[in-house]
Design a protein around this nucleic acid. Structure first.
Length: 212
DNA sequence: GGCCAGGTGTAAA
DNA sequence: TTTACACATGGC
């Protein structure tokens, strides 16, 4: 039985889930592109997000300045493959403009932004905010999601809110896993959870072997 | 053909 | 304060 986040981390670590995805699970770790990907992936599959990101790259607008100045109609067209494109186009451009307005550059944004600021931006909820902080800004911020909830449900845990789930995942982890920085531990942990659940699911059920 | 995907905003009860 | 629904595409 898994008693805490450290045990879950160590259990997942045995599976070498991310060895094909180093140095870090999220593509373009530490890059501005992560912000765009974090919004595009909302209720969408990552393979679809990659198509949209490639469209943006081809048009040379996958940058803070590019996304501030592109027409919203053109932006919608380029991100159509990821679904929910009207909302997401507004979110992406709105957030880009807000970053430019409040911080001036992606680098300043990364070093100064607070979670509360992100949560005030339209289209940025707790998961998107944490994804940006963790994978774009390399902060010590754990991301939890539907996969995390499903995995822990398979181990018998239920949580009412995003923050409750996150608190369980964070509580004891950083002090017990020391070969990486805390920021990397959180980033790695979330990545392992997603890859494990993807690889061990039948429908919405997570299949556990050798442990329960 | 229906369900689902690395959620969030909005409007009713 | 909680619940229900819309947003939209493509894979399975």
């Amino acid at each position: 039985m898994i008693k805490n986040a450290t045990e879950l981390y160590q259990y997942l670590e045995q599976h070498d889930l991310l060895k094909e995805k180093l140095p870090m699970w999220w593509p373009e770790y530490g890059n501005f592109e992560v912000i765009v990907g974090a919004i595009l992936t909302q209720n969408s599959q990552w393979t679809r997000v990659e198509v949209s990101l490639q469209n943006l790259r081809t048009e040379e607008v996958l940058s803070l300045e590019g996304l501030c100045t592109i027409s919203v109609e053109k932006l919608q067209e380029l991100i159509t493959p990821s679904g929910l494109f009207k909302s997401k186009a507004d979110y992406i451009q709105g957030l880009s403009l807000a970053i430019r307005e409040s911080f001036g550059s992606f680098e300043t944004f990364c070093s100064e932004v607070q979670r509360e600021w992100l949560l005030k931006q339209k289209g940025v909820g707790p998961e998107t905010a944490d994804s940006i902080l963790c994978y774009a800004c390399k902060r010590e911020e754990m991301v939890v999601d539907a996969y995390t909830a499903r995995l822990l449900r398979a181990f018998g845990y239920e949580f009412d809110t995003y923050d409750d789930l996150k608190e369980w995942c964070v509580s004891d982890l950083c002090t017990h896993v020391s070969e990486k920085s805390c920021a990397e531990v959180y980033a790695f942990f979330h990545g392992m959870i997603v890859e494990f659940v993807k690889a061990n699911s039948k429908g919405k059920k997570v299949i556990l072997e050798g442990i329960k």
